[in-house]
Design a protein around this nucleic acid. Sequence first.
DNA 1: ATTAGCGCTAACCTTTTGTATAGTGCTAAT
DNA 2: ATTAGCACTATACAAAAGGTTAGCGCTAAT
Lengths: 118, 118
Amino acid sequence: MNEEIVLGSQECVRSLAYVGDALYVIGGKWKLRVIIALREGNKRFNEIQRAVEGISARVLSNELKELEMNGFVKRIVHTKAPVVVEYQVTSYADTLKDVLHALSDWGEMHRNKIRREW
Amino acid sequence: MNEEIVLGSQECVRSLAYVGDALYVIGGKWKLRVIIALREGNKRFNEIQRAVEGISARVLSNELKELEMNGFVKRIVHTKAPVVVEYQVTSYADTLKDVLHALSDWGEMHRNKIRREW
DNA sequence: ATTAGCGCTAACCTTTTGTATAGTGCTAAT
DNA sequence: ATTAGCACTATACAAAAGGTTAGCGCTAAT
């Protein structure tokens, strides 16, 4: 038996678990897109909804709650005159930079590949 | 208006679309995990199922079909004596290396953070 | 002869995710 | 005075994703 393969296999088991952990909190159709919109500077509910094309108010509301629970977002209510609600990305969301970058780059490459094929 | 912010905003719109494209083909609970298992060297159906904890035969079957349609996997049938089916990762699956790495690293970091908090 | 493994697939059910519509109480603009 | 925007939430429903169970025809081992 080859040591390289055995080592690779152990790494794989770890990878499988870690990727599972990651997908558990940032998986799904919307979470990463909401985080991108927030990181860009969108702070208000309707602003975010417009930035993330296709998301409904109900789903956005749920996603924001989960993102808050997981420490990616802070919800700040300015209780005055018209009640204004602001969503802020936390510094923990910044730790996703590499993931976001890798996904975005791959998505770009993939889109170009698909276009070339048609 | 600040140029930096405007630039960042344009990049964001691209990012949103690209990440959307990426999630369209590799999103969901299982696809990346199946690819990891394949990359590790698992080639047979039941082998993959054992490697990817929790996946059912039905779901694995569907995922493999989609992965095949998207060019990540080749299905090879050895028609002899007992019919043996082999799944091979293509070189296109290798383009996901950075994504896999980033997600795995982040997942590891996140798991450690969670453990520290409890 | 029985059992276990292989590579699935069909049928059915539950859970998750998403959509559509309506509505609340407030303010600011027309 | 009406309309539009804000930040949602409730309700109801539909679609998509996933899980459970059973089973097929085959072979190799016990």
